[in-house]
Computed example of a mutant assay.
Amino acid sequence: MTPATPATLDAWKSEWVAHLDAEFEAAKTYRPEKPDWLEGRWKGLRTERGTAVTDTGVTRDTLARVGAALTSRPEGFRVHATVQRFLDARRKVLDDGAGVDWSTAEALALGSLGPPATRRLRGGASALAIATKSSVAIWPSLP
């Protein structure tokens, strides 16, 4: 294989930018004809009850209770000012019911699983695993 020269690299870069520009323009007028996520490996997926669609919703009361727990802290628990601003902003979004971001939705979903899930999600390893997608507040005990 011959080494790439500056001229070759410039040509590759120009080709790639032209390709990206063409794809960007094509995306402006793209209209899917049907949901393609239901094709391929997922086509025909069924459960014992027939379809794979199941009602997984929870009540607004449950979401309100979980949201209150997500944005509160135990009595005497010291919170960094930046974390408190985050909790206050999340509380406002939950109170308004608009602008819920992905991380808040995931936190609500996890919290709505209730006590059966909490029995499976105990301990530091669980907190570490969940912390990759959610927030975990830890108050280290200092002597």
Rank of each mutant, 00 (worst) to 15 (best):
S103E: 12
V66E: 05
F86N: 04
T71A: 05
A68F: 09
S103K: 08
A117H: 11
G99A: 06
W102E: 04
A81V: 08
T71L: 06
F77V: 01
A68H: 15
L94H: 04
R78K: 12
R85G: 03
S72K: 09
R73V: 13
L70S: 01
R85A: 11
K92S: 07
L70Q: 02
A81N: 04
L87F: 11
L108D: 00
L110P: 03
L113C: 03
L63D: 00
L110V: 15
E106N: 07
G114D: 04
H80P: 01
K92R: 12
L70I: 01
L70E: 02
E75F: 06
T82P: 03
R90L: 07
V100K: 06
A69Y: 15
W102G: 00
L94K: 03
T104F: 10
L63E: 02
E106I: 08
D101F: 15
T104R: 05
A69L: 12
L110R: 01
A105M: 10
P116C: 06
L70N: 01
F77Y: 14
F77R: 01
G67D: 03
S72P: 09
D61N: 00
G111A: 12
P115Y: 10
A81D: 14
G114Q: 02
R78Y: 08
A68Y: 14
D96M: 09
G67Q: 05
P74Y: 07
P74G: 12
T118E: 14
Q84N: 06
V93L: 07
P115D: 14
A107L: 10
A64F: 12
A109K: 05
S103A: 11
D95S: 07
E75T: 00
A89N: 13
D96L: 10
S72M: 09
G97S: 09
L108W: 13
F77W: 13
P116H: 04
F77L: 13
E75I: 00
A109Y: 15
G111D: 06
P74V: 04
E75M: 05
V66S: 04
V100T: 12
G67E: 03
A107F: 12
G111M: 13
D96T: 04
Q84M: 12
R90M: 09
A68S: 09
T118Q: 10
V100R: 07
T71C: 11
R91H: 12
L108E: 01
A98D: 14
L110T: 00
T82K: 14
G97N: 09
A105S: 10
A107W: 14
G111Y: 15
S112V: 00
V93Y: 02
S72R: 15
A117P: 11
T118W: 10
A68V: 02
L113W: 10
R78G: 03
A107N: 08
Q84A: 11
S103N: 05
V93R: 05
T82C: 05
D101E: 12
V100W: 05
V83A: 10
E106D: 08
L113V: 00
P116G: 02
R90I: 04
L108F: 14
D95Y: 10
D95R: 08
S112M: 06
P116M: 07
V100E: 10
A64H: 12
D101W: 14
K92A: 11
L70R: 02
D95V: 03
E106G: 05
Q84I: 01
V93P: 03
F77H: 06
A89E: 13
G99Y: 09
P116L: 06
E75D: 13
L63Q: 02
T71Y: 10
R90Q: 09
A117T: 00
P115E: 15
A89M: 08
F86R: 15
S72W: 13
A64R: 15
P116V: 01
